[in-house]
């Protein structure tokens, strides 16, 4: 352990601004690319689910309209 107290650790021997700036921006950048990638994947899958549901609905309404046509003709 190089530091005697937590405040000394935060102070970083006078270089606090630069050290924490570097670590902070790195953290933000890394978390940013992770969130972007994960969200992109999630949205992509969601859009496919939506598209599937849409296709399903279209299919259903087609068969339904066919049935009603048959009903009417009868």
């Amino acid at each position: 352990m190089q530091f005697d107290s937590f405040s000394e650790f935060l102070h970083m021997g006078g270089y606090a601004f630069y050290v924490w700036l570097a670590y902070g921006v790195t953290f933000v950048a890394l978390v940013g690319i992770v969130t972007q990638s994960v969200l992109e994947h999630r949205n992509l899958l969601k859009s496919i689910v939506k598209e599937q549901a849409r296709q399903e609905r279209i299919k259903k309404s087609k068969t339904k309209s066919k049935q009603t046509l048959i009903d009417v003709s009868e």
Binding site: M1, Q2, F3, F9, M12, G13, G14, Y15, Y18, V19, Y23
Partner: peptide, 13 residues
Amino acid sequence: LVFAPQDYQQFES
């Protein structure tokens, strides 16, 4: 950040 020694020239930076 916590355990590694500081540099004699560059200190904590």
